Amino acid sequence: MAPAEPGTRASTDPGLRARLVQISRQVPGPLIGLIVILVVFSFLSPYFLTTRNLLDIFSQISEIGIMAVGSALVIITGGIDLSVGAVLAVSLMLTAWLYRDFQIAFPIAMFAGLLLGALIGLLNGVLATYARIQPFVATLATMSACSGIALYITNGSPVTGFPDYFTALTALHIAGIPLQTIILVSVYLIAAFWLKFRPNGRALYALGGNEEVARLSGLNVQRIKVGVYVIAGFLAALAGMIVGSRLDSAQPTAGLSDLLSVIAVVVIGGASLAGGSGSMLGTFIGLLIIGVLQNGMSLIDVSPNLQPVVIGAAIILAVLTDRRAR
């Protein structure tokens, strides 16, 4: 019996190693990075792993996370949307402008802001498909235009004094969870379901993988791409409403500085800028990484001027990891 033991271990060890390798491949790389970051900050700050701080993280990243969903959908198709931050600003400013200067009922003004976001997304989609302008150029142009309009309609001054029921939305908690966090998670679940189980959602991967093959397979490429940009614009406007509710003001520059974070969330989450890959789970993990990094660095008194440097390094690391995996 004794001589057989080494042979038995030798025969089973390769199978065990293969199973371990298979299990490790099923664990998303960004998830491992998130766990490492959580452990590091839990040691660096005693206030990090408190319930209040964790809920604050979700509240702080809600608008970035919602915009990241639309950006992820666009990037999966092989495009890019640089205008989401500007759409957030102009949609919120239009809502505030209609409510303050024209005394339009706030629900109607808010609907107009959401509609404007969807229309700007429609414009982006038309420019990127039917006009055959590179998405980078098309959305860069709309970003510039939206930023200028947001500043023009109120002469660059913020608007305050929203209805109490609107500002109370982001202060509302359901079962101890902020409403904006529930909205954030709901948006991710709906998008994940659409990508996973709906044919037109799965078609996004076909477009990003090879647009010509997708067209020859019978997919309406132009309509699908336009629809994705509309979703991105609408979600950016929805994020703007959350910002306005939380701050009780509409700033003409709101959201403009969030573009880097939005793209970082999608890229760190595993989506390829070449298109054809990405998931809502990965994007959500990327969102948590950005949120935890920003919150943790603030807790340990890292200069705000250095925080973008860390995020930039995280983007480069994520891209290099994705390229090595491919």
Rank of each mutant, 00 (worst) to 15 (best):
Met143Thr: 06
Gly218Leu: 01
Val40Ala: 15
Ala145Asn: 04
Glu63Gly: 05
Ser144Pro: 09
Ala10Tyr: 03
Ser144Arg: 04
Leu256Glu: 11
Ile224Glu: 14
Gly156Lys: 02
Tyr99Thr: 09
Leu116Met: 15
Ile231Phe: 08
Phe162Lys: 07
Glu212Asn: 14
Phe162Arg: 08
Ile177Arg: 03
Leu140Asn: 10
Leu73Lys: 02
Leu219Gln: 07
Arg326Cys: 00
Thr8Tyr: 14
Ala271Leu: 03
Leu195Phe: 03
Tyr229Val: 04
Met143Ala: 13
Gln294Tyr: 02
Pro304Gln: 08
Val40Asp: 04
Gln307Glu: 14
Ala150His: 07
Asn210Gln: 11
Leu88Ile: 04
Ala138His: 10
Cys146Phe: 02
Val187Arg: 05
Asn295Gln: 08
Gly240Asp: 09
Tyr99Lys: 04
Val159Trp: 06
Gly291Phe: 06
Ile120Leu: 15
Leu293His: 05
Glu5Ile: 15
Arg9Lys: 12
Leu31Ser: 05
Ser279Arg: 09
Ala191Gly: 09
Leu288Thr: 02
Leu98Asp: 10
Tyr47Arg: 12
Pro30Ile: 02
Ser298Ala: 15
Val87Phe: 13
Gly85Ile: 03
Gly121Thr: 12
Leu140Thr: 09
Val213Arg: 14
Leu73Arg: 03
Ser279Asp: 11
Val90Ile: 15
Tyr47Thr: 11
Ile35Asp: 01
Ile66Gly: 10
Gln222Tyr: 06
Gln307Cys: 06
Gly79Arg: 11
Leu82Ser: 12
Met280Glu: 00
Ile174Met: 07
Ala171Pro: 07
Ala264Leu: 01
Phe41Glu: 02
Ile289Trp: 00
Arg223Asp: 07
Ile174Asn: 05
Gly65Leu: 00
Gly85Glu: 07
Ile268Trp: 00
Thr129Pro: 09
Asn53Arg: 01
Asp322Ile: 02
Ile108Pro: 12
Ile177Asp: 05
Pro163Gly: 04
